[in-house]
Amino acid sequence: MRHLLSTKGIDRATAVGILDVAEDMADVATREVKKLPTLRGKTVINLFFEDSTRTRTSFELAAKRLSADLVTFSAKGSSVSKGESLKDTAQTLAAMGADAVVIRHSASGAAHVLAQSGWIDAAILNAGDGTHEHPTQALLDAYTMRKRLHGVASRGRDLDGLRVTIVGDILHSRVARSNVWLLEALGASVTLVAPATLLPSDLSTWPVTYGYSFDAALDQSPDVVMMLRIQAERMSAAFFPNAREYAREWGLDDERLDRLRADTMVMHPGPMNRGLEISARAADSPRSTVLEQVANGVSIRMAVLYLLLSGEREADQ
């Protein structure tokens, strides 16, 4: 694997392979010594143009558990935000000898631009680009689903037949996009639920079904309900009238929670707006996978860093 920019186009074998490596990485966390020497001497740069403490920390922990040298380059408040271009930053990092760059950027496609520019030769790992993709989030979500389904027998399994409903601001969600492509590759079926204002205007090329009514989607008894964070600024841009109405129509409240099967998973990429898109009881219920998702995030990121930084770099374009 040369870069990880998106989950679009990923094949099932590759996806299962990443999840399997993550299983081994997860074992490390249970050991006395929670560290592997694998990436000793490799330099990983966390290039964060957008604040995200959780994702940044997760990557930091992953890189450190693999013994990589890690530098976090928080572009906020540095020269980058003062007009230094992506190009200059990339060339600087290349000069510093970065082997991998984990990039979070507010512009869709920023990771692609970095990977294709020729400004830097390092492996590029997309840690969230605008409203485009967030591939490691989707991978950790899939890992979490698989673990809940198959437990210790997860290795080698896909998500064939799993029915996943994703609810919320699909239009602006990189998590939703990455999940749609990855879940399709793994054999799951996806239903998107949102007000029409928060769905992309044309979903004809997406491998999904979609609807506007959360209650109608719940009637189908999904195996997984994934709630997306809703941002307050969407209200002022007239995507929906107010928080109360949003919560009433598209929030996972207690009443909707009680309609779920006991083994239906409730997922959320975090951070949650309790009481808006998800009730406190739903977030803390045994159905909720929120904390597993966080723990699994480190394993997935270890797996991806390992796969990007091992192997003959030129051989697998």
């Binding site: 074992d27 290795r155 091992s310």
Partner: peptide, 12 residues
Amino acid sequence: LGAQPTRAPSPT
């Protein structure tokens, strides 16, 4: 690691 094709780890 850098000289060989990527190996998938096996369980311990």
